[in-house]
Simulated scan of single mutants.
Amino acid sequence: MDNIKINGIKTYAYHGALDAERVLGQFFITDVTMYLDLRAASENDDLEGTVHYGEAYELVEQVIKSEPVNLIEHLAEKVIRALFDRYDKILEMDVTITKPSPPIDGHYENVSITLNRKREN
């Protein structure tokens, strides 16, 4: 299936289960893959046949900056719901949220989760 990807949306926000995360905040990196039929856009050169990725970016950023949540899993679900609500062309979506510096000891690059959701009829 065709897809649109928006990768590496870097947003400073205050999500986390620990009090320190809610006070100090941290960066979150969001990657979104939206699956949809892009045939009309590719054949007709018409924005109506696709999802405006600039607007989608702004919506994702708005969700990430919104009211703090405990889990990045829940945050990813909020991103998915917002995009599905805004764009009926999206049939399926992958959303990955990465915490580059979570408050855990150890040597690692980052921690991330990915949710995959299909539009329910």
Results as ranks from 00 to 15, higher is better:
A20V: 13
N3H: 15
I80G: 08
E77G: 15
T114W: 01
A20C: 02
Y14M: 04
N110D: 13
L91I: 07
K65S: 14
L36V: 12
D46W: 12
K65P: 09
E109H: 08
K5L: 01
G25P: 03
K89D: 03
V32M: 02
V51D: 11
Q26K: 10
L24A: 13
L47V: 13
T30E: 03
V60G: 02
D88Q: 12
L71C: 10
D45I: 08
E48K: 14
V63Q: 02
D88A: 04
I29W: 03
D105S: 07
I4H: 08
I72R: 07
G8C: 09
R86C: 11
G106R: 01
L47G: 06
D31K: 02
T30L: 09
D37G: 10
N110H: 13
V60N: 05
H74K: 14
P103C: 01
N3P: 00
D37N: 15
T98Q: 13
Y12G: 02
D31I: 02
V32D: 00
V63E: 05
K78Y: 03
L18H: 02
V69K: 15
I29L: 08
E58A: 14
E77M: 15
I72M: 09
M93H: 02
K118E: 12
A13L: 05
A56W: 06
H107V: 02
E92D: 12
L75M: 15
K89A: 11
K78V: 01
A76E: 07
G49F: 10
I97F: 07
H74I: 06
K65Y: 09
K5A: 00
A40C: 05
L75T: 12
V69T: 15
D37Y: 06
V23F: 13
A40P: 15
A56H: 06
P102H: 06
H107Y: 02
P68R: 05
L47W: 06
F84W: 04
G106Q: 00
L91Q: 15
L24H: 09
T30F: 07
